[in-house]
Design a protein around this nucleic acid. Structure first.
Lengths: 163, 163
DNA sequence: ACCATTTAGTTGATTAGTCATCTAATCTTG
DNA sequence: CAAGATTAGATGACTAATCAACTAAATGGT
């Protein structure tokens, strides 16, 4: 063997049992992002499972707790969600059926539906606060404050690529 | 007003129309990650839409192209996927129905099903290579080589938080 | 050689997500 | 103030994801 010109295989390539290197560092970063978030999401799902709450439902509840006691209109909730939610109506249907949110058509503008978190919803969130915090801690808590700031900056930059 | 102790609202907080600051930088980073990947995934979906291919189907095809002309067993494909895919069988069912992959039960070990990409599958991938590269370029291509290396390292660290 | 395990993958039932279309209320503008 | 445009949200039809239970083939110990 003469000189080994190949870089050592990256962590992500190993994790996915890849036999060949990535086409480009951009590819590799995109794959690493998708992969990392899938793991993060899986952790979150596990943390929420005891209460039979999905990440999207959890997101809605967090948003409503944030505005509580003020209600929010259906589409305002959709605007604030981390992941796009075209099915916001049915998402709220399920939360209402579980009595975690209440809905009431608005008096001034009767097209609008006001949504708010119920006492039960607040209780469910309270029970989930700690397990969810632990997920963040276990994963993202591995980074120092300056690394976190650095990561945030890089992600901002990626999102800037205007759609 | 005396002294303003508040930091300026972060990009991610603004994007989600948040009224109050994040509980912790860990929270903020996790939300930024989830959000960034949702946008990236949306871009990818748009790029794949003309061929009616989902990101997961695309991932399977890429994996099979990587091993081509060697076939892969069903569960080997699942192991290499970016996102967990408990529905790997039906995912392959759909790809087979679209004639993009072929399946054949293995002779030596009759439990195993060998999957391989078809000529048609290769053609579909070839047509998607450029649009997909553009997505990566538009988003992740905004970062310099050293920033990409930096990002990769931070993501590796997050994934290390062993499940 | 035989029976318990493990491995590979499939299937059925249920739930959730997606997209286009639809209704009702409000706004706008001549 | 009436007609068209816009906005808020709901609905129907369809597709996809999820979980547990299942079949069949191979393996491993006694």
């Amino acid at each position: 063997m003469l000189i080994d010109m190949s870089r050592k295989p990256s962590a992500i390539a190993q994790e996915l049992h890849q036999t060949k290197a990535f086409d480009s560092p951009e590819d590799e970063a995109a794959v690493a992002l998708l992969r990392t978030v899938d793991l993060l999401r899986a952790d979150l799902e596990r943390a929420l499972a005891p209460r039979s709450i999905t990440p999207q439902q959890y997101n809605v509840l967090r948003i409503l707790r944030g505005s509580h006691p003020e209600p929010l209109a259906t589409l305002q909730i959709a605007d604030r969600m981390i992941e796009r939610a075209p099915g916001i109506t049915r998402l709220l249907d399920r939360l209402e059926a579980a009595r975690l949110v209440g809905r009431k058509r608005c008096g001034e503008d009767r097209r609008i539906v006001h949504c708010s978190i119920t006492r039960e919803g607040l209780a469910v969130l309270a029970a989930l606060d700690e397990p969810v915090r632990e997920v963040g801690q276990k994963r993202v808590g591995r980074l120092s404050k300056s690394q976190l700031a650095n990561l945030l900056q890089l992600l901002d930059r990626i999102r800037e690529g205007l759609s």
